[in-house]
Design a protein around this nucleic acid. Structure first.
Length: 277
DNA sequence: ATCACGACCTGGAGGC
DNA sequence: TGCCTCCAGGTCGTGA
């Protein structure tokens, strides 16, 4: 579900609800989450109960809720995670795993059927000591990703460029959908070894990455099934996808059937005519 | 050091 | 209706 545009859309939707809100209590279902098992509930309660949320940040696909203490709450949505703000007395949806009760009569709830997500605690002065944050590469919408830096990263690996784009240690925030879409937009075959891309094609790829992510953001994310923002709203970007999930359907540019391949056990959709090695 | 692959979970879709 | 298989937006650990 949640790649950079979805995570950023969730963050933006949370800002008006959470900025300045005080955390009154923390509840957990007790079920482990894939990326934070076990959930550090005691430490979480001790660090955030009674604290106010001062700011919300995004790093790659992670959201950080900064408190007025030394800690932040780190959230990753995994594949099916949702962060929802609802009235305190709203019925608890199935697969609700963490609830932050807030003042103002509302809850921030983390709902995640597959439990691939994470809710964790981090000290802001030691954020990058957490391996999952420390390894993150360049944010494609930040100032770090340039034609030069992307070319430099690509030259270091023979991985298929599709796999390369999904590697969060290199460029952080792209997932399966936007990787496919960016490669289509740049006319690059997903199996092309990253180190065989010419500088001109890397430049086209960088522009395509930025374009598809910004379009996804304008459309408030891609909802294939589960994705909802913090107000429960779906995104609209699924209507703008050129290749993802369209196996057998005509390419929107040339009409030939969209093909599906696998890279690192993830589906890859592409147009064999428009995308060349 | 790279890298390919299975594991981690649940649920929805489609075939029979 | 029910059962089975396959697939899914992410990341990590293993072993070659």
């Amino acid at each position: 579900m949640p790649e950079l545009p979805e995570v950023e859309t969730v963050r933006r939707a949370l800002v008006p609800h959470l900025t300045g809100a005080r955390i009154v209590s923390v509840w957990s279902s007790g079920k482990p989450l894939r990326l934070a098992r076990p959930l550090p509930l005691r430490a979480l309660r001790a660090a955030v109960t009674g604290r106010r949320i001062t700011a919300l940040r995004r790093r790659a696909k992670y959201i950080l809720l900064d408190t007025d203490g030394p800690h932040s709450v780190l959230v990753h949505l995994g594949m099916t995670g949702q962060l929802l703000v609802v009235p305190h007395d709203a019925p608890r949806a199935p697969h609700t795993h963490v609830v932050f009760a807030l003042d103002r009569g509302r809850d921030l709830r983390f709902v995640d059927p597959r439990r691939f997500g994470m809710v964790n605690l981090v000290r802001r002065d030691a954020e990058d000591d957490l391996p999952e944050l420390g390894i993150l590469g360049l944010d494609p919408l930040g100032p770090g990703l340039t034609d030069i830096s992307l070319l430099d990263l690509a030259r270091r690996t023979r991985q298929a460029v599709k796999t390369f784009l999904l590697d969060q240690r290199k460029v952080a925030g792209i997932g399966n959908i936007y990787a496919c879409e960016a490669l289509f937009e740049a006319g690059v075959h997903p199996s092309t070894p990253a180190n065989r891309l010419t500088p001109a094609r890397v430049e086209a790829l960088r522009r395509a990455i930025v374009a598809v992510l910004e379009r996804g953001l304008r459309n408030r994310g891609t909802t294939l099934r589960d994705y909802r923002d913090a107000d429960g709203q779906s995104g609209q970007n699924q209507h703008s996808l050129a290749v993802y999930g369209r196996e057998g359907e005509p390419c929107r540019r040339c009409g030939s059937p969209v093909k599906r391949l696998e890279h690192a056990a993830r589906g890859t959709y592409f147009c064999p005519r428009c995308q060349r090695r």
